[in-house]
Amino acid sequence: MDVDHDSLVAFAKSWGLFYLIALAAGVLVYVFWPSNRKRFDRAKKSILDKDDRPGE
């Protein structure tokens, strides 16, 4: 298959844009999804736990 320069440019300029927007939307939804708040809060604080042993 022969891909010429112009079609590669067109592909990069269209799909490249769409997938990055989709990705950004996906990340924002994940980050602000209400039920994720609890796990993020736990992750944020649990590293400060002084216990230095693996969990049971």
Binding site: L20, L23, V27, V31, F40, K44, I47, L48
Partner: peptide, 23 residues
């Protein structure tokens, strides 16, 4: 955070910047 004994200011922001940097 461990040395400062304070949790990271915004955990959500850290995730957003992770994906931003990666992509």
């Amino acid at each position: 955070p461990k040395r400062a004994e304070r949790p990271i200011f915004s955990y959500r922001l850290s995730i957003i910047s992770f994906w931003g940097i990666t992509f």
